[in-house]
C-alpha cells in the first residue's frame, strides 16, 4: 500500500489538552471537617500561570477527574493551590491526598474574575461556603495592588463558625490591606460573636459607589441569585456583577458538551460570567 501518497505529515500529535501533566502534592492542610487545601508542584518543573477565577481539571489517577478552581496566589506560578471540599468519590480522593501523592492536572481553563478591569473602582467580594476558595486569588491580586482600587469589601457566609475557611488570612486582609471584612454564619455556636444569617443580610453594611462598583460573587446558585438581586437593588448594573458558575465538566475545553447553559459553555465562556448574561437563564428551572 502506498500510504505515503495519501497521508499528511501531521499525524503524530504531541500536544493534547486532554492529557494531564503530573503534579506532586508538597503540602496539605485540613481546613475544616470536609475541606482541605493542597499545594502542588509540577513534576516537569514548568510553571502554571493562571488568572484568578480560572480552574483546572484535577485528576486522581484511576479514580476520576473534576473541575476545581485554583485557590492560590496568582503572583506565584511555581505553586498550584487547590482548596477542595469532599463531596463525591473524586473530590474525596483529592481532598484526602497525602504529601508525595501524584495528581493529574489539565489547564488552567476558563475565564476568570478579570480583576484588572475593576481598577479605580470599589470592589465587593461576596463568598458563600467553599465559594471563598475561587475568590481568594482575586483578593490576593487586589491586596497586591491595593492602591489601584477604591473601597474593597469582603462579605463571607459560612454554615457554622467551624466551617469558615482561611480564618488566619481574613484578619490580615482587613488589618494590612484595608479590606472591610464581614463574616456571617447560618448557625452559631458558643464561640461566635458575629452576625448570624444569610450573606445577603450583610449587603446593607457595604460602603460603595453603585455606579463605580464591581461585585464578584461565588457560592451556591441560589445565594448568587439573591446576592446579585440585592446589589441590583442598590443600583449596581447587571454587567458589573460577576458570578462564577458551576456545571458538570468532563473536558474543560468546550468539547464534551456537559457544561452547557443554553448557548453558554461554562468551561470556556465562564466560569465567571456577567450576571446580565445569565440572570434569565438562572431563573429558569432545570435549564
Amino acid at each position: 500500500m502506498n500510504a505515503a501518497l495519501a497521508t499528511s505529515s501531521q499525524r503524530v500529535v504531541v500536544e493534547d489538552p486532554m492529557v494531564p501533566r503530573s503534579f506532586v502534592v508538597t503540602r496539605t492542610r485540613q481546613d475544616t471537617r470536609d475541606t482541605a487545601t493542597l499545594w502542588l508542584t509540577a513534576m516537569d518543573g514548568a510553571p502554571l500561570a493562571f488568572e484568578p477565577g480560572q480552574f483546572t481539571m484535577l485528576q486522581a489517577y484511576g479514580v476520576g477527574e473534576v473541575p476545581v478552581s485554583i485557590s492560590g496566589d496568582p503572583a506565584d506560578d511555581g505553586v498550584l493551590q487547590h482548596t477542595i471540599r469532599d463531596v463525591g468519590s473524586v473530590s474525596h480522593a483529592l481532598a484526602t491526598a497525602e504529601t508525595g501523592a501524584r495528581l493529574g492536572v489539565r489547564g488552567p481553563f476558563g475565564v476568570g474574575w478579570d480583576v484588572g478591569t475593576a481598577r479605580g473602582r470599589d470592589v465587593v467580594i461576596v463568598a458563600g461556603g467553599i465559594g471563598l476558595a475561587p475568590l481568594r486569588p482575586a483578593v490576593l491580586e487586589i491586596c497586591a495592588n491595593r492602591a489601584a482600587y477604591g473601597e474593597v469589601t469582603l462579605l463571607y457566609g459560612a454554615r457554622t463558625p467551624a466551617e469558615r475557611l482561611f480564618t488566619d488570612e481574613l484578619p490580615r486582609w482587613a488589618a494590612e490591606h484595608g479590606v472591610a471584612v464581614h463574616v456571617t454564619v447560618d448557625r452559631s455556636d458558643d464561640s461566635w460573636r458575629g452576625p448570624v444569617g444569610l450573606v445577603t443580610g450583610l449587603v446593607d453594611r457595604v460602603v460603595f459607589r453603585p455606579e463605580l462598583a464591581t461585585v464578584l460573587v461565588c457560592g451556591p446558585e441560589v445565594m448568587m441569585r439573591h446576592t446579585a438581586a440585592a446589589f441590583l437593588d442598590r443600583g449596581v448594573a447587571p454587567a458589573d456583577v460577576r458570578v462564577s458558575m458551576e456545571r458538570n465538566m468532563k473536558c474543560g475545553i468546550g468539547l464534551c458538551g456537559h457544561c452547557q447553559l443554553r448557548e453558554l459553555f461554562i468551561c470556556q465562556d465562564g466560569p465567571v460570567l456577567g450576571y446580565g448574561l445569565v440572570a434569565s437563564l438562572l431563573t429558569q428551572a432545570e435549564l
Binding site: M18, Y61, G62, V63, G64, E65, N248, K250, C251, L255, C256, G257, H258
Partner: peptide
C-alpha cells in the same frame, strides 16, 4: 458531540487508561 470520560485501571492500579466515549444529554448523569 457530547462525550464522557471513563477511567479504566487494572486491579493493582499499576496501569490505567482514560477513554473518551459518546455521551447523551438524555442521561441523568
Amino acid at each position: 458531540f457530547c462525550t464522557d470520560v471513563e477511567d479504566v485501571s487494572d486491579l493493582a492500579g499499576d496501569s490505567m487508561q482514560r477513554e473518551r466515549v459518546w455521551d447523551s444529554c438524555f442521561d441523568s448523569q
